[in-house]
Design a protein around this nucleic acid. Structure first.
Length: 256
DNA sequence: ATGGCTACGATCCGTAGA
C-alpha cells in the first residue's frame, strides 16, 4: 500500500482552484500541503475540494501567506503556528493523518540579506528547528512539506554565480535548512538520482521557465522511518506550463 | 539594463513575492 505526499505553493488558491482540482484528479495524492492560499478561512473553498475527494485543514489570511493541508482521510490534532513563536503570519499548519504527523510550511521569503524580513526568516527557522526536533521525538512518522524558500545547494540553483550570497542561498539560510537535516529529517528528493537542473520555482519574468532559470526551494522532508519507506520523489513541471500558472511546481513523494 | 510578471486591494498605483 503506497502513500503519495505532495506540496504545492499555489500562489492564490482562488485563482488556481481549477488547476488544483485537475491536478488532484490526475496525481491523486493522499495528502497535499498548499502554501500562499491568500484566502481567509471563511472563504476557503471546502465544498469544491470535498467534491474532488479531499478533506481540508487551513489557516489563512487576506492577501498574503496562508497554508492548508488536504487529505483523503480525516485530519486530526490540527494545530496552527509554531508553539511559543508569536506570529500573525499564517505559515505553519500541522495535522495527524492516519499514523503520520504532517507539517505544512510556508517559510518567509527574506526579501534581501540584512533586511528586517531576513532577520525574521532566520528567527522563524530557529523556532521551527526547536519545534520540529520535539515533534520528531514525539512522532516516529513525521513528514515536513512546504515552500521552505531556501535552495540548499548550488545544484539547486540555475546560476549559482549570479545568486551567490543572495537571499534563498545565503550561508545562514542554508545553515538553517541544514539544521533541519541535522535533527534527523531527510531531503526526500536527494534520496534518488535526479535530472540535472531540477527546480520547483521559476520567476514569472524574463521567460525564466522557458530558460529553466529556477530554484529548488519546495521540499519534502521525512523522518528516518519514513525515509526508509520512500520509493520516489519528483517535481511535476506540467502545471507550470499551463496558462496563468503558479510560479511554483508541485513536488510529489511516494512511500511504499 | 536593478527592469522584467503576477496577485491583491486599493484605485487606475503600491506592496510583496523569490
Amino acid at each position: 500500500m503506497t502513500v503519495k505526499l505532495a506540496t504545492w505553493n499555489v500562489n492564490s488558491l482562488k485563482v488556481r482552484l481549477d488547476q488544483l482540482t485537475d491536478w488532484l484528479r490526475r496525481a491523486s495524492p493522499d495528502v497535499i500541503c498548499l502554501q500562499e492560499t491568500k484566502v481567509e478561512d471563511v472563504n476557503f473553498p471546502s465544498a469544491a475540494l470535498e467534491a474532488a475527494g479531499y478533506r481540508a485543514a487551513f489557516a489563512g489570511q487576506k492577501t498574503y501567506n496562508g497554508v492548508a493541508i488536504l487529505a483523503k482521510e480525516p485530519l486530526g490534532e490540527v494545530t496552527a503556528g509554531i508553539p511559543g513563536f508569536d506570529d500573525e503570519q499564517k505559515r505553519v499548519l500541522a495535522a495527524t493523518i492516519g499514523d503520520m504527523r504532517v507539517v505544512c510550511l510556508y517559510a518567509p521569503n527574506g526579501q534581501a540579506v540584512g533586511s528586517d524580513k531576513y532577520a525574521y526568516k532566520l528567527r522563524w527557522y530557529g523556532a521551527l528547528r526547536g519545534w520540529l526536533a520535539a515533534e520528531l521525538a514525539r512522532h516516529e512518522r513525521l513528514v515536513v512539506l512546504g515552500d521552505l524558500n531556501v535552495a540548499p545547494e548550488d545544484r539547486d540553483v540555475h546560476d549559482p554565480k549570479a545568486w551567490e550570497g543572495q537571499v534563498h542561498v545565503s550561508g545562514p539560510e542554508r545553515e538553517a535548512f541544514r539544521a533541519l537535516l541535522g535533527i534527523g529529517l531527510k531531503d526526500s528528493f536527494r534520496l534518488f538520482e535526479q535530472p540535472e537542473k531540477s527546480f520547483s520555482w521559476w520567476d514569472y519574468r524574463m521567460m525564466a521557465f522557458r530558460r529553466n532559470a529556477g530554484l529548488r526551494i519546495d521540499h519534502i522532508l521525512l523522518s528516518p522511518g519514513l525515509a526508509a519507506r520512500c520509493a520516489a520523489c519528483a517535481i511535476d513541471k506540467a502545471p507550470r506550463k499551463l496558462e496563468r500558472p503558479s510560479d511554483h511546481a508541485p513536488v510529489l513523494a511516494e512511500l511504499s
